[in-house]
Design a protein around this nucleic acid. Sequence first.
DNA 1: CTGAAAGCGCTTACAG
DNA 2: CTGAAAGCGCTTACAG
Lengths: 344, 344
Amino acid sequence: MTKRVRRRSKNVVTMAEVAKLAGVSTMTVSNVLNKKPSVLPERRQAVLDAMEQLNYRPNVAARALASAGSIRIGLLYRDVENAILGAMLLGALKASVRLGFQLIIRSYDEAKPLDDVAAFAVSGIDGLLVPPPLCELVSFSGMSAKLSIPMIGLAPGTNLPDMPSVRIDDELAAYEVTRLLLDKGHRRIGFVKLPGAMVGQTRLAGVQRALGERGLTLDERFIWEARPMYEAGLALADRICKMDDRPSVILAGSDDIAAAIVNVMHRCGLHVPEDISIVGFDDTPIAVKIWPALTTVRQPLARIAEQATERLIQALQNPDEPRNDVIFIPHEIVQRASVSEHPA
Amino acid sequence: MTKRVRRRSKNVVTMAEVAKLAGVSTMTVSNVLNKKPSVLPERRQAVLDAMEQLNYRPNVAARALASAGSIRIGLLYRDVENAILGAMLLGALKASVRLGFQLIIRSYDEAKPLDDVAAFAVSGIDGLLVPPPLCELVSFSGMSAKLSIPMIGLAPGTNLPDMPSVRIDDELAAYEVTRLLLDKGHRRIGFVKLPGAMVGQTRLAGVQRALGERGLTLDERFIWEARPMYEAGLALADRICKMDDRPSVILAGSDDIAAAIVNVMHRCGLHVPEDISIVGFDDTPIAVKIWPALTTVRQPLARIAEQATERLIQALQNPDEPRNDVIFIPHEIVQRASVSEHPA
DNA sequence: CTGAAAGCGCTTACAG
DNA sequence: CTGAAAGCGCTTACAG
């Protein structure tokens, strides 16, 4: 019988040491840690003092392993360029820190998004925040049923069939902004759809509803598609610039697309908003960094992510409740300088 | 003696089940998992097949708890607006996924950064990536010695005394860009220092070296301070706009500051670069999203973070080696449209 | 090359 | 209200 020594890898303070110093069992320390009401005040204080004195910090891994409860939530991230994810990251961070959860970030490959979601889902996280447009893809693929962890969709363009989501009312937002443009006298409206996502269709419906109310329709030639990235906006704007019969205003699918259009118009010698008006979407930081500043639809992304994180954690703590509710967050039309009052 | 039932919280496949199906011990499964070369090929295959068949995924928490090895690294995050952190996040993500580490993100409060670093350091992570300017603060405060986990500084403005770092040579970069401006005929150079960080002083030294070589000095009135954020640039640009004796070119401390200056100059009726040239720093996405596009110094932030993550993981795996080396990453001067050839 | 056993630091029933 | 014991799913020495 040889002595078997296992050196502790890190010289961390354990619960046992706190218990010893406080003169209680580890159970009591655990109860104090988890704010169980049953511990007597004086004992609680003794434990708290011992924790303080030893600078005790619970080991998250041990906690996760022992506990039936969850502590880690994952967020899929795509790329930096995407200001949307940056804002969402902030909101998710805020809520997760507040509620004592760890936030694990992982990027995914756009060539095999579903595989990456599946791999992430089983990598030791307890719940998953799914940003757009990935959440629509996952939800409508039906894979979420096969995955063993709860998920929530962030800002999908439509209600999701098998997971809860937090979103704005895209149809209404598009309707309202279109009405605003009509009130300013715009009639030739251009619309940029976001491909591969429901949101394009949803917003288009809102635009058409506003037009329909005035007996107008959208000119098919003025409907384009572009990914919500600056580069895509650049390519699209080049085409628009060369048209001889241009819309008087363009409803871009994102602020990045709108900013790119503004940039190209400058180079084309067209003035914004005198010659052409541009409307963004999201109200990300770029909206006020360019000149002229963008009139846009504010989608409170940080707030959406924060609420979604709270909702996800709630789902983790109540595994049996229903799972496909929708929380709507109000949007806001932000008027700045990129839309003219009296269109050409 | 009552039966004590502990229901498994999640119906996950464990190593024991894989071992049973493969007809081996859990040890062998563990060895296969960790790619130990000692396992016989046919057994290895049996284990692999069993894993596949059961769709086995190792429990990260258990692994972390049992292992002396590390699997989690942390990154402190400040705010979305900061494109620098966005780029760094990408690089850190890339390296951590590749090397099989989890990346935990946490935000910190600028009112008590050191407290938040300390709290994060003991929250169950094994190593910490510290972005600028926090890394300078932490390093020069001497707190890193008290913290039990390895840290690495990302893009500090100077070499750090007690932790390794990955950075560009800021002095050289500032020197080179100043030489370029001098070659283009600029003499009245304005410089924006970043406050609360060594980097401002470091870059200023580079500017002064280039000027000194030509027998010139920097006009004290043309040295300003601004935090590397758009709003700070706006306030500064307002002041510059009102000067009657303006520099012919401004070396901004970040692309965000530069973009804000460009924006305000537009509003002031000044043309960039005809009336005034602007140089950014970092080459973040904003640099090409505004008009005119910014001439800037590219600091490969994603690459810096990626290298730093690799270096940190290496430090985790070799705890005894020295700890304050510096890895230099090459910078690059990117010439675009915001600098004139023939200054006013 | 392989496995039985101990251990990582916590939480969960259970008994008192 | 409190604690002894079992257990979470892995890895680490060690012996064979």
